[in-house]
Computed example of a mutant assay.
Amino acid sequence: MHNELFKIGGLTFYTYGFMIAIGIGLGYVVAQKRGKKLGMNVEVFDSLAIWLFGFGILGSKILYWITIIDQIAMNPSILFNLMDGYVVYGGIIGGIIGGYLYCKKHNLNFLEYFDLLVPSVALAQAFGRIGCFFAGCCYGSVTDSPIGITFPANSLAPAGIPLIPTQLFSSVFDFILFFVLITFARKKKTNGEVASLYLVLYSIGRFIIEIFRGDLIRGSVGTLSTSQFISILVFIVGITLFTLCRKSNVK
């Protein structure tokens, strides 16, 4: 794994950030093309993307702080570390809130844009998890199986120990989720169904992959990891949203 992609002078470009940039860029292009085919107003995408990104970053950071609140109480300077410490679920929740507020402000159909954007979110996550793999974050448990990956000393993962490559599991799952959502979007009956399917399927996949995670810093709620606990809530929200959309037949 090469976490450091290249350097220009004293500036270092990391593979993690590069993969996230690719994911966001491709997701944006896909959403633009699909939006145009559907006759939607894609001129709002630039400003909408800023709201989604801003609220997503804020949400991912806040949820991370919540998971380590005891450490922050002992060392408040952690709050000023902006280089790492982000939680995907927080980014999803924050992005949804930002998207809703933007659509509310500009009188746009939130569920319609939610449906349009979630496949691109899954695509961006797929590339982002590849970045996680190169950086060594979000690593899996110790394993003796042939699939074990040994990370180098400069990685965020424990060095020299075979670990389950949960980052790659997540990436493959997110790519599959992207194609499932794209396919389902062509057959949806009401606005909100694609978003609901994303919430349901992502929560199931994330809950399962969390079983194999080994980075305990992500916190826990009882016997569940924080993300597993949130997955249960997200699953319920997804099922509820799908049911309500079908009943109301929102167009």
Rank of each mutant, 00 (worst) to 15 (best):
D84F: 13
L177W: 08
P158M: 07
G148I: 08
F134Q: 05
N107R: 12
T166F: 03
L58S: 11
F173G: 02
T143R: 06
S60H: 03
S145N: 13
P146S: 08
V118D: 00
I69D: 12
F134T: 09
G99E: 00
L101S: 01
F134R: 06
G98V: 02
I176E: 03
I66Q: 01
G131V: 04
G91I: 02
T150Y: 06
F133L: 11
P146F: 11
S77D: 14
F114S: 01
F114T: 00
C138E: 07
T166E: 05
I93D: 01
I93P: 03
Y100S: 00
L63V: 14
I57T: 11
F53V: 14
H106F: 12
I176K: 00
V88A: 14
G131E: 09
Q125F: 03
Y89D: 05
F173S: 08
C138S: 05
P165E: 10
I93V: 13
I130A: 09
Y100H: 04
P165S: 07
L63D: 05
S171R: 02
K104T: 04
H106Y: 13
D144F: 12
L111P: 09
V172C: 04
F151V: 10
I69N: 14
P152A: 06
T143A: 04
I62P: 10
A153T: 14
Q71C: 07
G56Q: 03
A122T: 06
D70L: 15
L117P: 00
F175E: 02
C138D: 11
I97K: 01
I62F: 12
N109G: 00
G59F: 05
F80C: 12
S171H: 03
S141F: 09
P152D: 08
D174T: 01
I72S: 09
T150H: 03
G90P: 06
L123N: 05
A126N: 03
L82F: 15
S60N: 06
K105P: 01
S155G: 10
I62N: 05
N75H: 15
M74H: 15
F175N: 09
G90V: 02
T150P: 03
L58W: 00
F110M: 04
E112F: 00
G148V: 08
C103Y: 04
A122Y: 02
G136W: 11
D84R: 14
L156P: 02
M83S: 15
L79Q: 13
S145R: 14
I164S: 05
V142W: 12
S155W: 10
I176R: 00
